[in-house]
């Protein structure tokens, strides 16, 4: 009825964590490529083009976010950058926090800050009110 697992099945079952790390490794590269376009584009528009940061104010933000294109640009940039950065810091914590409890709590702090920032940013993009005074 049941037969012994093949070597590849056994490896897959024995190392679920390694597959998860592999997914993270691929995510860093895939999100990185997309972020090059989104973040460098964002920095170019905001800091260099047409007077750069000097022209930014509430009205400028209102103008940009009246266009769904920039809303979704910012949304995708926010999520990818936060997940990319969170996974990077998770790796750094893993490398330098050698004590188990320190590592655990540093990572918990990281995840709380990360989720909070993603939720806050997402709400801001979609609840923005240009007529707020």
């Amino acid at each position: 009825m049941s037969k012994a697992p093949t070597l590849s099945e056994a490896k897959t079952k024995a190392l679920p964590r390694r597959n998860w790390e592999m997914a993270g490794w691929i995510f860093m590269r895939a999100s990185g490529v997309i972020l090059i376009v989104l973040v460098l584009g964002h920095l170019f528009i905001m800091n260099i083009l047409d007077g750069g940061v000097q022209r930014i104010n509430f009205a400028f933000v209102a103008g940009r976010w009246s266009n769904p294109f920039w809303q979704y640009w910012d949304l995708i940039m926010l999520w990818l950058a936060m997940l990319h950065g969170t996974n990077g810091l998770r790796t750094i914590i893993g490398d330098y926090a050698t004590k188990g409890t320190t590592r655990f709590w540093l990572r918990m702090l990281l995840y709380v800050v990360s989720v909070g920032t993603i939720v806050l940013g997402t709400l801001i993009i979609f609840t923005f009110d240009p007529n707020l005074s």
Partner: peptide, 8 residues
Amino acid sequence: VVDTALVR
């Protein structure tokens, strides 16, 4: 993200 949140 926090400074931008001030638009709300």
